[in-house]
């Protein structure tokens, strides 16, 4: 494909047209804002140049990943809080016609069966407890992860998809009078574990 003439980048040609522009501007950016690197590269012997530019890119990358990490954390907290409120509302609706719960385990069973079935169209596959306030809910084919490739490739992205559900569980339990901390854990893709730690008063 012929590259468009300078100064004219109609949107339709974006794919062909933008790449050179980006490369150009990046070059301009470097020489404009970081003269130190450029002069080092030009003035000193072989390895000093690449090394210092590596340092810089490392620093920039470190900075951006750190920024991204805090940003990501904030999003996850927000999602978790949204899930909390939704969970409160849902549990109010779902428990409207059920008998009063006998104890904590009864409530956890309700979450694993009725609640999970209504929200995710399947039950929790395994519920374990140490009888001291820790419950582990295991879902071997968690709905929100089934659309992603199985395996370890996108493991780092799983947290975004689990935050809301963690909030959902926490909100539901809190509305039933149980304060808890819920964390999620994925070791291979569609399967995931939710750990519920009950906060005793």
């Amino acid at each position: 494909m012929k590259s468009p003439p300078d100064g004219r980048f109609p949107p339709r040609l974006a794919a062909g047209g933008w790449a050179p522009l980006l490369a150009q501007s990046r070059g301009g950016f470097e020489s404009l804002w970081v003269p130190g690197v450029v002069s080092l590269r030009a003035g000193s012997s072989g390895h000093a140049g690449p090394e210092s530019s590596y340092d810089r890119s490392d620093y920039v990358q470190g900075f951006t990943t750190r920024k991204k990490a805090t940003e990501n954390g904030r999003c996850i907290t927000k999602l978790e809080n949204m899930g909390f409120r939704v969970g409160q509302g849902l549990i109010e609706r779902f428990t409207k016609d059920t008998a009063r719960f006998k104890d904590e385990l009864d409530i956890m069973k309700f979450i694993c069966k009725d609640f999970w079935t209504t929200v995710f169209k399947k039950q929790i596959d395994n519920l374990r407890t140490n009888h001291q306030g820790i419950y582990v809910l295991q879902d071997n084919k968690f709905r929100l992860l089934t659309q992603m490739s199985a395996g370890k490739q996108y493991l780092e992205h799983a947290s975004k998809y689990l935050a809301f559900t963690c909030g959902l569980i926490r909100g539901g339990l809190s509305n039933l009078g149980i304060k808890s901390i819920v964390t999620a854990e994925v070791s291979s893709m569609p399967a995931c574990k939710f750990q519920v730690m009950i906060q005793k008063l």
Binding site: E92, F101, L176, G177
Partner: peptide, 8 residues
């Protein structure tokens, strides 16, 4: 008369 929901 009284009534208590599951959410107390």
């Amino acid at each position: 008369y009284g009534y208590v929901t599951n959410s107390k």
